[in-house]
Amino acid sequence: MHAVIPYATAALLFGLGVYGVLRRRNAILVLMAVELMLNAVNLVLVTADVTVTAALGHRGGVFALFVIVLAAAEVGVGLAIVLQFYRMRAAVQVDEVALHHEPEAR
């Protein structure tokens, strides 16, 4: 088994995730791209579990599980924020979020 195949796959997936986060305007699609990035990190962890096992023991899998749990928590809170923003403004475009206070917004 060539170690480079899963590593290169993970790197390309991470790049796709970065591209999606920067490219997409829809907040839900941004969250999907973040999931892609987290999965790429998981793939690196699991592969490291196999390839550098002398230094790592079998911790890569445990860390991957922790990252999956964190991703679940992240997507739960993130979608709550997105839905609340949609309820307030009827929009899910991230570049329309006002970062300063707007007194006459509504």
Binding site: A10, L16, V18, G20
Partner: peptide, 26 residues
């Protein structure tokens, strides 16, 4: 901008990994 940054990150990381592991067989 997304293409430059995302492509740079993806291909850069891939190049790093490929350089680090070459054709190591595990």
């Amino acid at each position: 901008p997304a293409l430059v940054v995302g492509g740079g990150v993806g291909l850069g990381l891939a190049a790093l990994f490929i350089d680090a592991f070459r054709w190591t067989i595990v």
